[in-house]
């Protein structure tokens, strides 16, 4: 086999000493906090997506419903939680959410994990209310319970609905078709860009040799970040152009045409009736 010529002497030098923790020169993992955080966020986003897909694949009450009726029903219960002024009604909605989660075989820990950030955020935002009189305390608890119920229902919908079902369901509802398609494509390509972002972070991590080396040049870090932003902008623009071209080449003229999908079954009507009933009760109370 032919070989490359002009190999410099330094490249021919072999190291004679293996790596050892006993005489290591560098300390620290060389991963800057923001890079480690980026990687960890990407990994947790991917894990969350996989969790959702796994949950959505289980046989359960919500999973067995038509996606359109599932979305419409949960949305009406969410609206009920948003407008009710009655603590008992709100408590009932939270109880209903727990029953739905149980019947849909959603692990409580997964649901709680999804709800906790919104719960904590709301608690922090309205913390001053708790220092007011008794009414303030009650109002604070009520707001937290309302946010918790709405977040839990949204999480429940996400956990029991595959991405494809979500978009299929939205298409059957009175949502503009082009909006749904744009949303689907955004969701689809965001994961490609997410994968690319992860690889970019890994590529940098694989070339980080010492923390000290990087600290010498903060501007290098900033340039890396700026170059990645520019790369993703360029890639997304290129991709958008390619996707548009691919759609046009297959006959797309601005109007998205899709299959109608499955019709509603008896259980969907029962579910919709129950969900709308909760909504009307919330309006009444």
């Amino acid at each position: 086999m032919a070989q490359i010529t002009g190999i410099p002497p330094w490249f021919k030098e072999a190291r004679d000493k293996p790596c050892s923790t006993r005489d290591a020169r560098g300390k620290g993992d060389g991963t800057e906090p923001f890079l480690a955080k980026t990687l960890s966020n990407i990994a947790s986003a991917a894990a969350r997506l996989l969790d959702s897909e796994e949950c959505a694949g289980r046989p359960g009450l919500l999973q067995g419903l038509n996606p359109a009726s599932r979305i419409a029903g949960i949305c009406s219960v969410i609206m009920g939680a948003a407008i009710t002024k009655n603590p008992a009604m709100l408590g009932g909605i939270i109880l209903l959410t727990a029953v739905l989660a149980f019947a849909s075989r959603v692990p409580p820990a997964v649901l709680v994990k999804r709800v906790m950030p919104a719960f904590a955020f709301t608690a922090v935002i309205i913390a001053p209310v708790f220092f007011m009189a008794n009414a303030g305390f009650k109002a604070g608890v009520f707001i937290i319970a309302r946010v918790t119920a709405m977040t839990a229902l949204t999480a429940l919908l996400a956990l029991t609905t595959r991405q494809t079902d979500l978009f299929r369901g939205l298409r059957r509802l009175p949502v503009p078709q082009f909006f749904v398609t744009a949303l689907f494509m955004t969701f689809r390509y965001i994961f490609i860009l997410l994968k690319m972002a992860e690889d970019a972070a890994f590529a940098k991590k694989s070339r980080l040799i010492s923390r000290a080396g990087l600290r010498q040049s903060q501007s290098q870090n900033q340039r890396w970040f700026a170059s990645r932003v520019a790369l993703f902008l360029k890639k997304s623009l290129d991709m958008a152009e390619d996707v548009m071209g691919a759609m046009a080449s297959r006959g797309f003229t601005g109007q998205v045409k899709t299959f109608d999908g499955e019709g509603l079954r008896q259980r969907d009507y029962i579910w919709l009736f129950a969900a709308f009933f909760v909504f009307f009760l919330s309006v009444g109370f």
Binding site: C19, A24, M196, D199, A203, L208, S210, R223, L231
Partner: peptide, 28 residues
């Protein structure tokens, strides 16, 4: 172990070429 001292030696000795060169090239 990478955090506690092996990293520099390890990264000096192991190089990784990614399938998508764009993700790897970040300098001006």
């Amino acid at each position: 172990t990478l955090k506690h001292g092996l990293l520099r030696c390890f990264r000096e000795r192991v190089g990784f070429v990614f399938p998508e060169p764009d993700v790897q090239l970040f300098c001006p």
